[in-house]
Amino acid sequence: MEGEPAAKDEQPGPGDRAGFETLFRSYAPRLRGYFLRRGESSAHAEELIQEVMLTVWSKAKLYDATRAALSTWVFTIARNKHIDARRRMTRPEPDPDDPCFSGGSEPPAPDESARAGERSERLRAALGQLGEEQRTTLEQLYFEGRTMQEIAHRDGVALGTVKSRARRGVLALRAVLVEHAGEDGDEL
């Protein structure tokens, strides 16, 4: 990987063009891989990457390093851009400024926050340990953007099987996070 994100907990900020380029260089290849796997043409993928990075930059002040790893934030922006482009819709999302919004806005456990980067390391390692079926099911959901119904059809298995593969995969990944984070692993 050329240059892991300069620093995972680094705060991107406007007005720093060199910083932007560093960020761009570290994420563009990954984003390209992501969009190509979601079936975009190379040209469109490049357009989307620019969109994503510009959004990352212009909304840098909204990014909270104590809440999520930078890569997680970039991923959510990439996913949303893709949904917007593909379906011509805006993805419905909860808004913390909504008068209806209730509960905390997820202040993470105090030492959980500092370890956002470490968490993604652990997740990546755990991905490698995942059973083949669970992993490919998650990849199809996250990358190919197939619905569970479509995956069931494609893999020639029952919908329930896809659901349970996805679910077991998520539980296994979640376990490596919870195991280290201490409590806060209330079962769903």
């Binding site: 990987m1 050329e2 290849p29 990954r30 984003l31 390209r32 891989g33 992501y34 190509l36 796997r37 809440r67 999520a68 790893a69 890569s71 997680t72 970039v74 991923f75 959510t76 990439a78 996913r79 909860p94 509960g103 997820e106 968490r119 993604s120 997740l123 990546r124 991905l127 490698g128 998650l138 990849e139 996250y142 990358f143 998520v170 990944l173 979640r174 996070l177 806060d184 769903l188």
Partner: peptide
Amino acid sequence: RREVAMLDEVGAALMDAAGND
């Protein structure tokens, strides 16, 4: 919301792992 945030982390990890086209 926490659960979805965790699922987003999974997505980022997958993106990182698959990345680098």
